[in-house]
Design a protein around this nucleic acid. Structure first.
Ligand SMILES: [Mn+2]
Ligand SMILES: [Mn+2]
Ligand SMILES: [Mn+2]
Ligand SMILES: [Mn+2]
Lengths: 218, 218
DNA sequence: GTATAAAGTTAGTCTTAACTAACATATTAG
DNA sequence: CTAATATGTTAGTTAAGACTAACTTTATAC
């Protein structure tokens, strides 16, 4: 089994390689707030364990094994977040730091039980998919709210930014996953949207925010 | 805050000093399965942090601070065990190892929520008291089943041994906390008890087992 | 009361995971 | 195409927490 430290490297590698498929030592170093020489060292150790492909001066790539192990930690993280929100009554802005710790608990039974009690959820409280027990996860093709047109009706599916402040901002506006939103108009100037949802009418949402909300059209 | 390692030393010190009030380096070493020199070293570090009174060649004693911190970890352990049993459906024989890990989670909110959802429980699933938020805990004066007399009616209040095997043994006999037991007779030879409970009549319980069951008379 | 055994300490080593300083390679800019 | 900058590596150090070997103190046995 891997140390808590290795697990956090795995998660970081996984998160950062989302787009390019590979990560620079520099990016990883910044993301983890750990100096580059330490990262280089750890990459060599993890290469020896067959978790990452490492060649001097080349970008880092998770191996198949590394990718799976990372996904399984993320699975524990997201199941935990979902459990905390759905079964314990936490707000979606409160759960990340707790999950950051609980994801390292070694107990297949605990997470199997969470999953069962949640009735095999596919998404976490932020709308992000939960990997299955084999580390596989499906990304549904959601659209950014910012790309929607006036007149469209959409349903809140996921948030891109999961910072405390952003989630609390959404709480104050009563915006949550599953919420049905109708786009009334879009300011041509700054792309601010005027929307309607629940008992909020003519509410404006800045482009910055719209860029961070994923919706499903229906 | 203390490291996971220090927390486990605190817990061990607390558990071992139950009776005498102090612990030998040797006992602590055996209990933690850590060699004596390592323990001596750690005791010096913890003395510096004012968690333990340490003098060369003298028995170890937790300070007031150390005792409180230990109790607060034990509080997290027992709240977790209770939560796992009551809210997640685990058996009382399954929860110790999970709690051993979760007790180290740094999140006052998580444990406050558990406590609230459990409606401020006073005992864990093994009948052991849960320290309050100030680290205080009350031991109710239960009797050993082995000390009870024929004809008495008692209620299962706690188990002294919490090993997997013992708890599974009790499961097979359908013996659980809260169970009402009537003592029919006691074999004068080996002190085996013949008892009656629920739909079990004339069931025998060995002295060894009776010594490990705490009951409340009523 | 000394001899032996048990318990405790000291000194030195190891591993993990961090750091800084110095050097090497790659990238970018002019 | 070279110079400057950014990125990456090597070497050496540190702290936490473990170990063994050797020594010291305390307890127990005769
Ligand atoms: Mn999260
Ligand atoms: Mn983590
Ligand atoms: Mn326990
Ligand atoms: Mn523990």
């Amino acid at each position: 089994m891997h140390s808590l430290v290795e697990e956090n490297y795995l998660k970081a590698l996984f998160a950062l390689s989302k787009d390019k498929g590979s990560v620079s030592v520099n990016d990883l170093s910044k993301h983890l707030d750990i100096k580059m020489p330490t990262v280089t060292n750890m990459m060599k150790k993890m290469a020896f364990k067959n978790l990452v492909h490492y060649q001097s001066y080349k970008p880092l790539k998770l191996t198949k094994k590394g990718k799976k192990e990372a996904a399984l930690i993320i699975r524990k993280h997201r199941l935990t977040e979902m459990y905390l929100v759905e079964k314990m009554g936490f707000g979606w802005e409160e759960v990340h730091n707790i999950a950051e710790q609980i994801e390292h608990i070694k107990s297949p039974k605990l997470f199997a039980k969470m999953e069962e009690l949640l009735d095999y959820p596919k998404f976490d409280p932020h709308g992000t998919p939960i990997p299955d027990i084999n580390g596989e996860m499906e990304w549904k093709a959601f659209s950014k709210l910012s790309e929607c047109k006036p007149g469209e009706r959409v349903k809140m599916a996921a948030v891109i930014n999961t910072s405390d402040e952003f989630l609390k901002f959404l709480n104050r506006r009563e915006i949550h996953l599953g919420l049905k939103i109708r786009i009334e108009s879009v300011e041509p100037f700054d792309n601010t949207m005027v929307v309607k949802y629940k008992n909020h009418s003519g509410e404006t949402i800045s482009h910055t925010v719209c860029e961070r909300l994923l919706v499903e059209k229906f």
